[in-house]
Design a protein around this nucleic acid. Structure first.
Length: 159
DNA sequence: CAGACGATGCACT
DNA sequence: GTGCATCGTCTGG
């Protein structure tokens, strides 16, 4: 962003299935808001909730993965600037937070995540363990264990 | 147009 | 852990 690289390691995600998942936005069918979900795989689905925005990666439409938490790697100072003065551990520890920290807005909704200014790469990091747990912050279908996180020094600092 | 809702963040206990 | 502010989007009239 602005010639500055902002990067972070994804340490927590949640999966949202196509139609059998009552909590997914795709459950009620396509709307103006969810059109990116039904568009094509490999793009970003960015939606607003309350005063925040959340960032999804569309898999097989309309199935998506919500990026819940990030470990800041590059551009930390700029992230702090974008977020306002916050502690490092709070910089990207939530869907809305990480979007603001990375400068992601709704104008990025539906963009290609391979050839755009926002992209995901494999940094070769091998997690020792994938932690599976129940999803958080939703009112429906909470029993599904579609929340996945990885071991991280950053994560252990939080707790 | 009015009303309801939410994949949140923040302050507080 | 709990409660609430707050606003874009969806739905119904």
């Amino acid at each position: 962003m602005n010639g500055q690289i902002l990067s972070g390691r994804i340490i927590e995600v949640e999966a949202y299935l196509a139609f059998e998942d009552e909590a997914a936005h795709s459950f009620k069918g396509e709307t103006k808001r969810t059109k990116s979900l039904f568009s094509e795989p490999g793009i970003a689905y960015i939606y607003s909730i309350h005063q925040q925005v959340c960032f999804d990666v569309v898999c097989t439409t309309p199935t998506s993965v919500l990026v819940r938490s990030l470990e800041p790697i590059e551009g930390i100072e700029l992230m702090k600037e974008l977020r306002g003065k916050v502690n490092l551990k709070d910089l990207t520890s939530g869907p809305g937070k990480l979007c603001k920290a990375l400068g992601i807005t709704k104008q990025h909704d539906g963009i290609d995540l391979v050839n755009s200014e926002i992209y995901i790469v494999d940094d070769g990091f091998k997690s020792t363990e994938i932690i599976k747990s129940k999803r958080i912050g939703i009112s429906k279908a909470q029993h599904h264990e579609y929340r996945f996180s990885i071991e991280s020094e950053f994560l252990s600092k939080k707790t």
